[in-house]
């Protein structure tokens, strides 16, 4: 049985340290960019954390002009849209993240398949301070 902990708190704790970690099944080798206490592929219980490179390619994206409350509070809206997407990591699993370092109003700057690398965005003050996973255009091919 696993002795490590695999909760959302662990995952966001890694993000706060600017680390992207994945949960690997020691039985079948499946890898998830999520905190998974059991393997949904083989029902195995022997998971272990491993670092992910954060390198990947954009699998799908959108530019959000009508944001949720949390992103309105972060300054986004009709006149300041943002890009978010699903990134297929080089190690296999995919994960959602805001795409930063691009002009959201210039759709020519973003394309499915573009290489990206993980970065970390911190928002909020005091107890609400939280680090989010994001991606930016890869600096090297």
């Amino acid at each position: 049985m696993a002795t490590e902990s695999f909760t959302q708190a662990d995952f966001t704790g890694w993000l706060a340290e600017h680390k992207l970690m994945g949960a690997r099944c020691q039985s079948c080798g499946a890898l998830y960019a999520e905190a998974r206490p059991m393997c949904p592929d083989c029902f195995g219980d022997d998971m272990s954390w491993e670092p992910l490179s954060g390198q990947g390619k954009l699998a799908a994206y959108t530019v959000v002009y009508i944001p949720p409350t949390a992103m309105i509070e972060a300054g986004y809206g009709r006149d300041n849209p943002y890009v978010t997407g699903i990134v297929a990591l080089d190690e296999g699993p995919s994960i959602s993240g805001q795409i930063v370092g691009v002009d959201a109003k210039d759709t020519g700057q973003v394309a499915v398949g573009m290489p990206l690398q993980a970065t970390f965005v911190t928002r909020g003050e005091g107890d609400a301070r939280r680090t989010f996973l994001a991606f930016e255009p890869a600096t090297e091919a």
């Binding site: 799908a60 994206y61 959108t62 530019v63 959000v64 009508i66 944001p67 949720p68 949390a70 992103m71 986004y76 943002y82 978010t84 997407g85 699903i86 959602s96 993240g97 805001q98 989010f132 996973l133 994001a134």
Partner: peptide, 11 residues
């Protein structure tokens, strides 16, 4: 990640 419902389908 800032996804909204229209955002999911936009993706």
């Amino acid at each position: 990640a800032g996804f909204t419902f229209p955002g999911f389908y936009g993706a």
